[in-house]
């Protein structure tokens, strides 16, 4: 509320969405994700120094409500990029351009990535990874083809 900057909350949400869509979308690569993390960190700085939240604090204020959510989305967006960067395999619709079969299908890497990534907050732009191992007893993950 006290920032009294020049840009609307909505404009930050749209810019974050564009970064995520372009660089952490269905097909992503290492270079793009590294760029996205830097861009989101810059966006975060700009948000906390130049956002404009109209209205008062002691009344119904939909813009303040939205600002709180967009601030969370910015942090979550950065973490999503970090997680996507860390997972070097392609996994279904999460397609890493570096990890594809000869005919352009998603290439899995179950030897290294058969886990659920749980990230613990460890300060500004910093998270600790905890791996929750996945053990498939009956159905084994395998290369899929929809051709």
């Amino acid at each position: 509320m006290n920032i009294k900057g020049t840009k609307t909350v909505e404009s930050f949400h749209k810019r974050l969405g564009k970064i995520m869509w372009d660089k952490c979308g269905m097909a992503r690569n290492e270079k793009g994700l590294q760029e996205a993390i830097v861009e989101i960190q810059q966006l975060k700085k700009e948000f906390w120094s130049d956002v404009r939240i109209p209205g008062d604090i002691d009344e119904m204020n939909p813009e303040l409500d939205k600002a709180g959510r967009v601030a969370d989305f910015i942090e979550l967006g950065e973490l999503m990029c970090k997680d996507a960067l860390n997972r070097k395999e392609s996994c279904g619709g999460h397609f890493r351009e570096e990890s594809q079969t000869e005919d352009g299908e998603a290439k899995r890497d179950d030897a290294n990535f058969s886990y659920v990534a749980a990230w613990k907050f460890a300060g500004e732009s910093n998270w600790e990874l905890t791996k929750e191992e996945l053990n498939f007893e009956i159905v084994k993950p395998s290369q899929r083809s929809y051709k």
Binding site: T8, E10, R52, P54, G55, P62, E63
Partner: peptide
């Protein structure tokens, strides 16, 4: 309205 400094 926000851009103009008014209340939405």
């Amino acid at each position: 309205l926000i851009a103009e400094g008014k209340e939405p």
